[in-house]
Nucleic acid binder design. Structure first.
Length: 719
DNA sequence: CTCTCCCT
């Protein structure tokens, strides 16, 4: 020990700490340790190496660290990607501890809102989205001599785009860049075939056996069957915590309520005498970080009357990858997931519940075998599992609208139609996305290349339409107000996640009353703005906490809006053509100008009311679809003949909805983007076109300035 | 009467 203790850490030129030797012992015991020499020689002799390793192999921390020592010390770095911020933080901390350095020195960490990369950094742990950002600024990624993509099997959009880019860099930077793709499942063929000349290496993992159990016949009610299974396991199963995968938050609450009723008490009370105590915890992303923390770290109740005490966690798929729970030996899997899917044909989004893939079900079951042998109960028949479920989950790139991705690909100097996708989205989706981007002025009408507006949009981390609003907003004198409003839209998902979850009818009524208090008659957008403004003034008065509590608002959402706002402001400030402008709330046209600024980016998302007798039924201008308004903060009131919306959604059948909606005077629409509206030829003949023609005729009859748009008067605030 | 999950 004493001779070891004198060893010098080459990265710090200081003696290693005692902890270093403890960490090194543990690292040497990982399954990947014995495979390292072989992996390193594969990396030395090949440009692209695919590493397939099961969870628990230790590949994520050990391989990048070892590769780093092989690389030339020329100041260039090794990038190691993760699909989530939390994962990136944990991996960076782990590697830094093993190398006996603090994060931010030799080991760096980078993701949105965090830049711990310095001159000394040689190994950079980064989210895949953040590496895409870097690739947009430098498409050859010249600052890196090695890139390690982790969790490639998850097929996040950013990872799939990076793989396409790396396929080309593997040729362009043949002797200059090492590429390592790490994946957990066995679609090694996919990656191996994608990179010509690559080698595939397999590393064994270390997981305990998980026994599988299926239903004898398909479940009539999934919730009832899950609750029955929970009670069976609790009464007769061996000790250990129970983790349930439910498809949605609604089901989580139903399950917990039913279990508590069956056990005859509230959360931690003792059940009937022959059953031990069980504490129930919900776990999902809309829970505050505090509540998530409590669910993860709560200790199972003690054994009572000789009966086992247990902790029951009912989670969405957040527990599949993002959060690791300890002490779980029983997994009950609904085998269902929800995913948001883009329908190119009518440009609608649909949240659909589907069977999980076999790969996802295996991942879920594996959560029961982290500490010792476990059990997994699947809420489907064995035949159904093998015959009906897909082998792998559908990659995210195939379910999205490709708007932002097309811009990103163009910014990386490639064409969205010929990009070497590892999994290609439908050509129709790409063509549609390019069409929308052309209408928004982000790409050229002819060549399909990025316009200067398109370039600016790629730098703004918001919805593409909202980016247009932000870039255009100084024209209306309210860029400051739009920054707040758009940041709120991003943070709260259009107002969906803003208030605490209401359990009782009383709480629901309370929240409805609060909503009503902040409500602007035009609808969702300005209501969000009102809430943000009220919170900001409470903050500067030092009463933010009381304000949040009183109004049952989620502080995390408002804080995240605030940090998004600051990030956007920093980016926009660098644009020469952009200026921070704000208005006096006393102006008569205060709210009208904000609606106009919103209309400048949302002019492709406008609908008109069918008739006065059906106040919620609207027809979209883009594809003449009939949809109902479904607002999160209360419907627009008054003469809401025209509305703009942020989401056009489908129930998967015949129903269509407009979400995040505001009423807008048609004159505002026209004057915000006169070039687009001047000539309503693009609309099919009918009542919408007729009324628009009438509106425009009345406006041209008036002042020319009005239709030309922009600020009729000088803005009241400029800075 | 609807709200899976991440990322910039």
């Amino acid at each position: 020990m004493s001779s070891n203790a004198t060893k010098i850490n080459p990265y710090t030129n200081k003696a290693y700490s005692a902890n270093y030797f403890v960490q090194r012992e543990q690292a040497l015991a990982l399954p990947v340790a014995s495979a390292l020499p072989d992996l390193l020689s594969a990396v030395a002799n090949n440009n692209v190496v695919i590493v397939v390793g099961e969870t628990g192999s230790g590949k994520t921390t050990q391989l990048p660290k070892a590769v780093l020592e092989q690389l030339q010390k020329d100041g260039r770095r090794l990038a190691l990607t993760q699909n989530r911020r939390l994962a990136a933080q944990l991996v960076a901390a782990r590697i830094a501890e093993e190398m006996d350095v603090p994060v931010g020195t030799v080991v760096g960490l980078r993701h949105r809102g965090c830049d711990l990369v310095g001159k000394a950094t040689r190994l950079e742990v980064v989210t895949d989205g953040s590496l895409i950002m870097a690739a947009k600024a430098d498409p050859k990624l010249t600052g890196y001599s090695a890139i390690v993509i982790d969790e490639a099997h998850e097929h996040s959009v950013a990872t799939d785009l990076l793989l396409g880019l790396l396929k080309e860099l593997a040729v362009q930077r043949q002797n200059d860049l090492k590429i390592i793709i790490m994946s957990a499942t066995i679609d090694a063929d996919l990656f191996g075939n994608f990179f010509p000349g690559s080698v595939v290496k397999t590393v064994s993992g270390r997981e305990h056996k998980v026994l599988l159990s299926y239903l004898a016949s398909p479940a009539q009610s999934s919730v009832d069957t899950i609750v029955e299974t929970i009670l069976q396991v609790h009464m007769f199963g061996r000790s250990g915590n129970i983790l349930v995968f439910a498809p949605s938050v609604g089901e989580i609450f139903k399950i917990i309520k039913m279990v508590e009723e069956a056990l005859g008490g509230t959360r931690t009370r003792l059940g009937p005498e022959d059953v031990g105590p069980m504490s129930c915890w919900p776990l999902h992303a809309t829970l505050s970080p505090d509540a998530q923390e409590r669910a993860v770290h709560a200790v199972a109740p003690a054994r009572c009357n000789g009966r086992t005490g247990r902790k029951l966690i009912v989670a969405t798929n957040i527990a599949e990858t993002s959060i690791t729970l300890t002490g779980v030996t029983h997994v009950i899997d609904s085998c269902k997931v929800k995913s948001k899917i883009w329908n190119v044909e009518d440009e609608s989004w649909c949240l659909r519940e589907q069977w999980v893939s076999k790969a996802a079900a295996r991942q879920r079951a594996g959560r029961a075998g982290r500490t010792r042998e476990g059990m997994a109960y699947r809420m489907c028949t064995e035949g159904g599992f093998h015959e009906q479920m897909l082998e792998h989950s559908v990659p995210a790139i195939m379910e999205g609208d490709m708007l932002r991705e097309c811009l990103d690909i163009l910014k990386m100097g490639r064409s969205p139609l010929t990009f070497p996708y590892i999994i290609a989205p439908a050509t129709e989706t790409i063509v549609k996305a390019l069409g929308i981007l052309r209408q928004l002025g982000a790409i050229d009408a002819k060549g399909g290349s990025l316009t200067s507006r398109g370039m600016e949009i790629t730098r703004l981390p918001v919805d593409v339409y909202s980016a247009v609003v932000l870039l255009d907003s100084p024209r209306f004198g309210c860029s400051d107000e739009m920054l707040s409003l758009i940041s709120m839209m991003e943070a709260s998902e259009g107002g969906k996640q803003l208030f605490l979850t209401a359990f009782t009818d009383e709480e629901k009524a309370q929240i409805a009353k609060i909503r009503n208090y902040f409500k602007h008659p035009s609808g969702d957008h300005l209501t969000l703005f009102n809430i943000y403004t009220a919170w900001r003034s409470a903050s500067s008065a030092g009463t933010a906490d009381a304000f949040l509590k009183e109004n049952k608002l989620l502080g995390a959402i408002l804080k995240s809006a605030d940090s998004t706002r600051l990030q956007l402001l920093r980016i926009l400030y660098r644009h020469e053509s952009w200026a921070l402008r704000f208005m006096s709330p006393l102006r008569l046209d205060y709210y009208n100008l904000m609606l106009k600024a919103l209309a400048a980016g949302n002019y492709l998302r406008v609908a008109k009311r069918e008739s006065k007798s059906e106040p919620k039924k609207f027809t979209t201008l883009s594809n003449s679809a009939v949809a109902r308004v479904e607002t999160s903060l209360g419907p627009p009131s008054g003469a809401n003949e025209w509305v703009m919306y942020n989401e056009y959604a489908s129930d998967g059948n015949t129903k269509r909805f407009l979400r995040c909606v505001s009423a807008i005077p048609p004159e505002c629409l026209v004057s915000a983007q006169p070039g687009y509206w001047r000539d309503p030829e693009f609309l099919p003949h009918g009542h919408i076109r007729d009324s628009l023609v009438k509106v425009i005729a009345n406006m041209t009859g008036g002042s020319e300035d009005f239709i030309r748009g922009g600020m009729p008067n000088a803005p009241s605030g400029t800075s």
